[in-house]
Simulated assay, not measured.
Amino acid sequence: MFSSRPDGMAPDVSFILPVYNKATALPYFFTSLLAQQGQFSCEVIFIDDASTDASRSILDSFAAKHDFVRVISNDNNAGPAIRLNQGAAQAQGKYLALFDCDELLAPDAIAVMLELARDHDADMVHGKGRKTDASIEQAKAGMIGSDIDVKTFDDALDRILGRGMVRMTWLVERVLFNQAGGCDPDVFIQDESLPLRLSLHARRVIDANMVVTSIPDAGSHLSVNKMQQHHDRFLTYANFLCEHPEIASDKRRKIFGKCISAARKAKRDGAPFNTLDLELRYLAHKIGLGRNDPVGLSRFAFVFQNLSGIRRPIKP
């Protein structure tokens, strides 16, 4: 059974949990957190992003009952990326546990992730989520156990530029988070910007084929807005290219390609790109022509920045 940190000592794990209008799911998520098995100390930091439902009062009730729970309240809705950074800035644990508060944790999620991090000297550990048609009241999260397919990558950036590591099912070292600067504060949803930025500084990333969260039907998710996804994916990679000119040319090409891919998908879903211009840029990239730098993306960035119906961060 996990415990709160002893007085004057840093905890092993800090849960950093942004919340916006999760009142329906929060009691069930928190129950799965309290049910965590294993010998580790923790603190739990909820960051309320100006919820308009009962989330804040529910969080306050958690804090009133448990001395390891802290609630950070905010008067304006800034977005999960900024709120995750805000919570991490106050964390004291060696590791940060990063999850969505409308999912259910496997009972041994943290214990297994900690063991993998320590056994493989990894500063990033990623698990998987499994969707269920059950409501959150009826959903169950099973044990992970020991039969796990574990892959380790010393070139974390190369792995992150692959596929399938965008769920918020992370255990990462706090030192790494701080070194990377956390989430991109210019992108509303952090799902892709966080692992990308972390990977540039990581020693080793673990991609484990284990289900650490059950994802029930708990209401609306930011990720169901496809245009928001395309917008945030484009800006994530375009910003990263601009901030890191030192990245090797083969990786720059992959990053540039992700930007073009995001623009093409946005065009398919109704964004007003010039079709000929976009397809010519795509073909040029495919055959290795043109420079893979942010200048070549500026006209696409302009379209994304002027899309309506997109949620953008509000910086403090």
Rank of each mutant, 00 (worst) to 15 (best):
S261H: 13
R174D: 13
H230A: 01
F300E: 02
F29P: 06
E137L: 09
S261T: 08
I72M: 10
D133L: 10
F68S: 03
V224T: 07
N74K: 13
T152C: 05
I144G: 02
L200D: 07
S73K: 13
R311D: 10
L222Y: 11
A35N: 15
S4Q: 15
I58D: 05
R299P: 05
A97G: 00
A109S: 15
D158C: 00
T236C: 13
K254Q: 10
P272T: 02
I72D: 06
L59M: 05
R253S: 07
R130M: 08
L196P: 00
L307H: 06
E192H: 11
S61Y: 04
V212S: 05
F256V: 00
F256R: 01
A139C: 14
V175C: 13
I16H: 06
S3K: 15
L222F: 07
D123H: 00
L241N: 06
A266D: 01
C42Q: 13
V172P: 09
S220M: 12
G219H: 13
N274E: 13
R163Q: 08
R264G: 02
A134Y: 06
H285D: 14
V172G: 03
Y237D: 03
A25V: 08
D133M: 11
L84S: 09
S261F: 12
T236V: 00
G288V: 12
R83K: 12
A106I: 10
G142L: 11
L96M: 00
I287R: 12
I148V: 15
K140M: 01
R252Q: 14
N178P: 08
A111L: 01
V166F: 11
G79M: 04
F273Y: 01
P272W: 04
V187T: 02
N76I: 14
F304H: 07
R253G: 09
V166H: 03
W170G: 08
V295G: 04
C42W: 08
D133F: 08
R197D: 03
A134G: 11
D186N: 14
D12N: 09
G127K: 02
N85A: 10
P80A: 04
N306D: 12
V166Q: 10
H230E: 14
I310F: 05
V112K: 07
N274S: 09
D7S: 15
S32W: 06
D269G: 03
V125S: 03
K65Q: 08
S261K: 09
A25T: 06
T213I: 04
M113K: 04
N85G: 00
S73D: 15
F302W: 13
V303M: 02
E43H: 04
D67F: 07
M124G: 08
A117Y: 05
T236D: 04
A35V: 01
F234C: 04
L34C: 08
I314N: 07
I310H: 12
G296C: 02
V175A: 15
I144V: 14
R299K: 09
K65H: 11
K265M: 09
K131G: 15
L26T: 06
S57K: 15
Y95E: 04
D293S: 09
L114W: 08
L17I: 09
A218R: 03
